[in-house]
Nucleic acid binder design. Structure first.
Lengths: 170, 170
DNA sequence: CGCGGAATTCAAGGCGAATTGAACTTTCTG
DNA sequence: CAGAAAGTTCAATTCGCCTTGAATTCCGCG
């Protein structure tokens, strides 16, 4: 019982409005497809749902997660440009709000994740060709050709990226 | 030490030619990006590397994995069209070979996985709108509009799929 | 039918990634 | 400069997915 306050202090994650909870879950699922940890989806979801600037402690309270998770999740979101930090005049808390320009967010993600992975795949493919083309490694007949085709498809995929970027920009 | 046999019975995964092992590892990594279990990458990798028709028991022996894993991995690969089953005349074992037409494979993956996920996302978004637009659910002001934008972006993403398909087809 | 080899199923266990929470660092304030 | 408030770090724990292997089902054949 104790004190009467304006907001009914949510004890459990999303004990707030159903709409809020729903949005949070939506982003959790979306994040799962990108293999992001649940906490990250929750944080972004809550920021997106409320549209307000919230502090780390707000997130901890309203999502019922640990400070550690919130801190790490926010770092990831900052890194991805999905979230903006602001400050209030006489207050040293960090205030976070969702970056509302989703296309920019998606482009950032594509750039950072996909291109990075393609570069990595490049190196692996080169290495693979070296090993396969070395006669001492017992590559079955025809394998060399198949690996080459692999490479040509990978190049096609790479050419697709900028195309996708511009398309999503609109 | 028992019996002398033609092939030196690999005790450990990929105890065969280095080239083979390398190809297997390559597909394991590739699979990781698509968050497929390691076993799936291994199976497809070995089939791709050898270019032969192999039975479940071959896979179990040469990759040192359990029958259960092999069975489930093969099911997944069959479902994705990444692998073809054939039969030999007087033999009731299933013989598997890698689907060599990678573009088809990629298209299949896009169709099965991505479209499926988009449909799922569709349903989720519809649900989300319903909840958010219900006045009883305490949606903050402006949320409805943000959710709408979410939907428009999702539509753009969907329009990107066929484009990607044709592009990869060449 | 019933036998036997081939494949699938699924409960239990293993393993790696995510989360927690307490210790720590930093920075402001009186 | 002491104290507190904000945030970060990281070792220990938890949790969920993947694998295992034994039991079960499936199927063709005598």
């Amino acid at each position: 019982m104790s004190r009467a306050r304006t907001a009914p202090r949510p004890v459990v994650a999303g004990a707030s409005a159903p709409a809020e909870r729903e949005v949070v879950e939506f982003f959790v699922h979306l994040g799962k497809y990108l293999s992001l940890p649940r906490s990250v989806g929750e944080i972004y979801g809550l920021l997106f749902a409320t549209g307000e600037k919230l502090t780390l402690d707000d997130l901890v309270a309203r999502l019922a997660m640990s400070k550690g998770s919130a801190s790490q999740g926010l770092r990831m979101l900052r890194g991805a440009g999905a979230v903006r930090v602001t400050h209030l005049p006489g207050d040293r808390k960090d205030y976070y709000e969702a970056e509302a320009d989703l296309p920019a967010l998606i482009r950032g993600f594509l750039r950072d994740q996909l291109v990075l992975k393609l570069e990595h795949a490049d190196r692996r493919l080169d290495r693979l060709r070296t090993v396969v083309d070395d006669p001492g490694n017992g590559a079955p007949a025809g394998l060399s050709g198949r690996v080459e085709r692999l490479q040509s498809w990978q190049n096609k995929a790479r050419r697709l990226i900028p195309l996708a970027s511009t398309f999503l920009k609109l």
